[in-house]
Write a protein that binds this DNA or RNA. Structure first.
Lengths: 189, 189
DNA sequence: AAGGGGTGTTGACAAATGTCAACGTTTTAA
DNA sequence: TTAAAACGTTGACATTTGTCAACACCCCTT
């Protein structure tokens, strides 16, 4: 699965990335079953994951112990509790495989080693951060400016893959509405 | 006002930042009146701003042309449409001074020049990104997991300064609720 | 001092969304 | 393969939140 990561990086930084093979060999392949937790709230998130295949849910529990989904991340993207990873703090969120996943994982020590020894690697990290941030910005704007119905339409327009491949329950939680409301509003479109 | 920025950077990177004075002289001081727009949706955001004093509102318009507030940023923090700035794209958001502000601005060309010539400067940028991202994460989690009342309580606990110094109208828009609902729920606490 | 615009609060009502329950369907696990 | 569990939909009703209007208040400006 390393070839997917190689391609991911080359697409973004060009074909001439010095030290690329050193970077690639540092990642370990992990196979995760559907439903398995990759990061648990309260524990330290000391890896960053490249998703070679599958789909991860990033969530917290609300007052009634429902899972409320902050993000859904699919293959060819990065996922981690970056705040926990960067600050060596306990994770404030959980990360769960909602499909069987193949992840390429790098631990904190190796990560910082690469940051110092491979000049281009910090560009990789910056791009992960920028992409995660941009994603968050759009998401907040949907919450402050759109109704539930319009958030559904937004999701259909901008992340149509999610609608078809994930359970209604998960999508509803991602949109911040109940499963029943989601079912009813969907029928209206 | 440059001394505030110097202190901001030294607090985060230590007192021995090589090239720090080169960095500082690159910033231009801008005085902004209350109500003035710093960044306009559709135009390019080609500066990053350090807020020496005052307060900025980052917002978009909803379908009814109400301002819906994605973020509120106070002094000793950074503000920009980072997506527009980084990608040289039109800004998707507006930024407005909700108090008289003193900003320290750096334009894109100077910014990238510093990134290449001052080794530590990209750490500054990374910290801006990380802080912005962390802030977004918490904010999304309040929307997916909390009711309007609990979002108000969250704001009182985690950003109490905002409650006392900003108008109710602005806070309500930041919380994603109407002014009237905000007024009523406040009375319940 | 007087007028005007924005703000904050409150009431009455409407609209949106949540909760609980029921039921058929699909998926999972033994 | 079969039983159990989870899922998706729908109905009835409760709760939350929004909208519109009125009004008092404050801060401007003139």
């Amino acid at each position: 699965m390393i070839h997917l990561l190689r391609q991911h990086i080359q697409t973004r930084l060009g074909n001439d990335v010095s030290g690329l093979e050193d970077v690639l060999t540092t990642f370990k392949e992990r196979h995760i079953k559907r439903g398995e937790l990759v990061v648990r709230q309260g524990e330290n998130c000391d890896h960053v994951y490249y998703i070679a295949s599958g789909c991860l849910q990033v969530f917290v529990y609300d007052a009634d112990v429902n899972e409320t989904t902050r993000d859904i991340v699919i293959e060819d993207n990065w996922c981690a509790d970056l705040i926990s990873f960067g600050g060596s703090q306990p994770a404030t969120e959980n990360i769960k495989a909602v499909e069987p996943c193949i992840l390429l994982a790098i631990n904190r020590a190796d990560f910082y080693h690469l940051m110092q020894t491979v000049p281009q690697f910090d560009k990789v990290y910056r791009q992960i951060l920028e992409a995660s941030y941009a994603n968050s910005v759009y998401r907040i704007n949907t919450f402050v400016s759109l109704s539930a119905l319009d958030r559904i339409k937004w999701l259909m327009d901008y992340r149509p893959k999610l609608m078809s491949r994930l359970s209604s329950k998960l999508i509803a939680s991602y949109l911040g509405i109940s499963q029943e409301t989601f079912s009813r509003l969907k029928a209206k479109i």
